[in-house]
C-alpha cells in the first residue's frame, strides 16, 4: 500500500499550514515523521484522513485519489487514524469501542476482535470499563485496536507516545514492531526520537509546512548536525 502525497496545501480558515507537502510512504514500511511543535505534522495527518479539507495537491493510496473526500470515505478506502490525545469515547466501554470500529469500515479486515485481544491482552481484562476510566496507556492500546479493526491498509499514528510513561512507550513500540512484522504500513508522527528510531525504517522531517529532509533512520541517526539543525535536539 503506497501512500503518495504531492503538493498538498491545507490550513484552518485563512491561515495556511501545509505549504506544499511531498511525501510517500512505501508499502509495508514505517515512516517516522519528525518536526518541532507547530510545523504542521498533525494538520498533515488530519488532512490525509479527511478531517481537514485540503486547499490543493493530491493524496493517493495505491493510485486512488483521496484528497477532498470525507473522513468516512477515507476510512473505507483503507486508512485508519490513531489520533493525538487518543480521543477515546469516554462514555463507551472497551467492548463498545471494538464493536463500533469492526462493524463499519471497509478494508480487507484481517484484524478481528480475538486477534486484537491476543495482541493487546490488557484490553480483554478491561472489557467492561468505560473509555474514560482507562489509564493513558490502555487508552492508547484501545485507540490502536479501534484503528486496526476498521480493516485498514495503512495506519496514521499521531504521537502515540504523548503523555505516557517510558515503560508504556516501550510497550507501544513493541506493538508497532509486531504490526510491522505483519506488514502493516505506518505513517508515524513522533516527538519521541527514541520511539521513532526504534520502529521507523525511514525518517522525514517537517519544517514550516514542508518536508525538509528525508533519509533512512540509520543515516539520520548518524548525521547529528542535521538532526540538531532541523529539530533543535541532539
Amino acid at each position: 500500500m503506497t501512500l503518495q502525497i504531492s503538493g498538498l496545501t491545507s490550513g484552518y480558515g485563512r491561515s495556511s499550514v501545509l505549504q506544499g507537502v511531498d511525501l510517500d510512504v512505501p508499502d509495508g514500511r514505517v515512516l517516522g515523521l519528525l518536526g518541532r511543535n507547530g510545523v504542521g505534522k498533525t494538520t498533515l495527518i488530519h488532512t490525509v484522513m479527511g478531517l481537514v479539507r485540503p486547499t490543493g495537491g493530491s493524496i493517493t493510496l495505491d493510485g486512488e485519489e483521496l484528497a477532498g473526500r470525507r473522513s468516512d470515505q477515507v476510512a473505507r478506502a483503507g486508512l485508519a487514524l490513531v489520533p493525538q490525545g487518543r480521543r477515546i469515547w469516554p462514555n463507551l466501554d472497551v467492548t463498545e469501542h471494538l464493536d463500533l470500529a469492526s462493524r463499519r469500515g471497509g478494508g480487507a479486515g484481517i484484524w478481528t476482535v480475538p486477534k486484537i485481544l491476543e495482541l493487546l491482552p490488557r484490553l480483554g481484562e478491561r472489557r467492561n470499563h468505560l473509555g474514560g476510566q482507562l489509564s493513558g496507556g490502555e487508552q492508547q492500546m484501545l485507540a490502536i485496536a479501534r484503528a486496526l479493526l476498521t480493516g485498514p491498509r495503512m495506519l496514521l499514528m499521531d504521537e502515540p507516545s504523548d503523555g505516557l510513561a517510558p515503560t508504556i512507550v516501550d510497550q507501544i513500540g513493541g506493538v508497532i514492531g509486531t504490526l510491522k512484522e505483519q506488514g502493516v504500513t505506518v505513517l508515524l508522527v513522533e516527538q519521541d526520537l527514541h520511539l521513532a528510531f526504534l520502529v521507523a525504517d525511514k525518517i522525514a522531517v517537517m519544517v514550516k509546512g514542508q518536508i525538509a529532509h528525508r533519509c533512512s533512520t540509520a543515516d539520520f541517526r548518524a548525521d547529528e548536525p542535521t538532526a540538531r539543525r532541523l529539530l533543535g535536539v541532539a
Binding site: 473522513s71 476510512a75 462514555n91 463500533l100 470500529a101
Partner: peptide
C-alpha cells in the same frame, strides 16, 4: 453516544 462525544472519530472509523 460516540457521536455525541467525538463525531470526528466516529467518521474516522468509517461511519457516515
Amino acid at each position: 453516544r460516540a457521536s455525541v462525544s467525538d463525531r470526528e472519530m466516529v467518521s474516522a472509523v468509517g461511519v457516515d
